[in-house]
Structure formats: C-alpha cells, structure tokens
C-alpha cells in the first residue's frame, strides 16, 4: 500500500550555532539566513525512508513567509515529492495553538493522509507542542520521540520505536496518525541534483493563502493566539573557567580532566 504522508516543517533563523558578539555579548542577527528547522530534517528523513520502503508520496507543509520557498526547494532536493507553502499576512504572529489549527486544517484539506510527521521541536522556540496540538484538532492518535517506524502486518497501522532514557518502547498506532520524530535520530540524506532540478523546474510548490484555506480570522494569526509572552529574560552567561591541560599524554590528560571535574563537585564513578 503506497503511503500518503505529510511532513510539517518550520522555516527558522539559523540559530543552530548561537552567534554571540564577543564584545557586547548580544546575539548576532544581522543577515542571518533562515533554514529549515534542523530537527524537522529528521522528520523528513523518516518520511523518505518510509517512502523508500513502501512507496507513496511525501508532501511537505510549511506555514511561513514566502522566503521559505527556498527551504521547501531544499526538501524537494532531498526527495520530498511536493510542498505546500501556507503564507498569508493573516497567519502572522501565530502561537502554537493558531499554528497547529492552520496545519490541522491544511492536513484535513489533503486527506486522505496516512501519516503526518513532525520534528521534535524547533530551534527557535522549542515548545514541542505542535504535533500534539495538531493531533488534538484532528482527533487522531499521536506519538513523540520516534526513532524509526515501519508498517504493521495488516498495513493498517504503524509500528514505531522510541528510545527513552532507560528503555526502548515499541508502539503500534492505527493509521491515520501523527508522529513526532526524535531529534538527531537519523542522518538526513543530502540534496541530489536530479531532485533539486525538479524543485527548480517542475512547479512542485503550491502556495496557499487564507483565500484557499478560508479559516476564521479569529482562530489564526495573532488574533487566534492566546499565548502572552509576559517577560523575556536573557540567558545568564556562565563564565567558563577555560582551564587548559598543557601536557601531551592522553592518559594523563584524562586523569587530569577527571580530577578537575571532581574539584567541581562532579562525582566520578
């Protein structure tokens, strides 16, 4: 049975490496290009692996400004079949509730969908709420921290594994369902020339404004977002000790390091 899958991604500023101005200690934002949320690439990779195994179609969805087109082209470059860019000023300023509502409505519009895949969280807000909230809107089962997945025996379900701190859990969920993929759980495949040329020449990206989705403006964007950011506190800068081992012997270096850690109160077992 070929699978019809969607993967929801976010277009975020590249803060993967936090660039702190060494003089002022503030975040360098100037000209920082946006990228597809790196954790979403693990979701895309999992979707592509399912597609490799069972055939089917993987559609990427992003609710983002128009510049996200470049990111969606990147995903098509990886092997995603087509993409939907949900973009409208009406969607701007959305919190997770409004975002998940729009994504749920988009997925509904694409039904029948077997699996909707999400990254664990985004690097710019790290809520990890979107998968669960979207599932609630759709009234479908969902599961988090998935590291791999395969179809169940009757092809009517999906069997996923998730790695917790002390155990590996296996679950079987009926299709359709939503899964959130653990960050760094796989190595996203590189972009290929043939896929990237398709992205550039075959018009595989659809743009949906609210004229297409026709959602109640009170449920989307800033208006549909009850979250209030009351206060923003910068992360305290913890001064580093910057100790340097000056010897050359690796074994000695290891002992030295353990000693320093013990001095700091780390219990070495």
């Amino acid at each position: 049975m070929p699978l019809d899958m969607v993967v929801c991604v976010k277009w975020v500023p590249n803060t993967q490496v936090v660039n702190i101005d060494p003089r002022t200690g503030t975040l360098i934002r100037e000209g920082v290009p946006s990228i597809i949320n790196p954790h979403d690439l693990n979701a895309v990779e999992l979707g592509l692996r399912l597609k490799d195994s069972y055939g089917g179609r993987l559609t990427a969805i992003a609710m983002s400004p128009p510049s996200a087109k470049a990111g969606l082209e990147f995903l098509i470059g990886m092997g995603v079949d087509r993409a939907i860019l949900i973009t409208d000023r009406a969607f701007a300023g959305a919190d997770t509730l409004a975002t998940s509502y729009v994504l749920a409505k988009a997925i509904e519009r694409l039904m029948p969908v077997d699996i909707a895949i999400f990254g664990q969280e985004t690097i710019d807000s790290s809520t990890a709420h979107i998968c669960a909230q979207t599932a609630s809107w759709l009234k479908l089962p969902y599961i988090y921290y998935v590291v791999d997945a395969k179809l169940g025996d009757g092809k009517k379900s999906i069997v996923v594994r998730r790695v917790l701190e002390r155990e590996v859990e296996t679950f079987e969920l009926p299709l359709p369902c939503l899964i959130s993929v653990a960050m760094k759980s796989n190595v996203p495949r590189p972009v290929t020339l043939s896929n990237k040329i398709r992205a550039k020449t075959e018009g595989l990206i659809e743009v949906w404004s609210n004229d297409v989705l026709k959602l109640d403006v009170n449920c989307i964007g800033l208006k549909g977002s009850p979250t209030v950011v009351s206060k923003s506190v910068p992360t305290p800068v913890v001064p580093r000790k910057k100790l340097k081992f000056e010897g050359t012997d690796p074994a000695e270096a290891a002992r030295w390091l353990l000693d320093r850690l013990e001095e700091e109160g780390v219990k070495v077992v």
Partner: peptide
C-alpha cells in the same frame, strides 16, 4: 584580542554531520 573560537562563532554555520 578576539580568540579564534569566538571569531569562528561570529559566522553562520550549518555544519554537516559527516
């Protein structure tokens, strides 16, 4: 002086896993 590590940190990166 700006340490090399800090200078490199002024850049934007998307480092590959390989």
């Amino acid at each position: 002086r700006i340490r090399l590590e800090d200078a490199l940190n002024a850049n934007v990166w998307d480092v590959d896993t390989k």
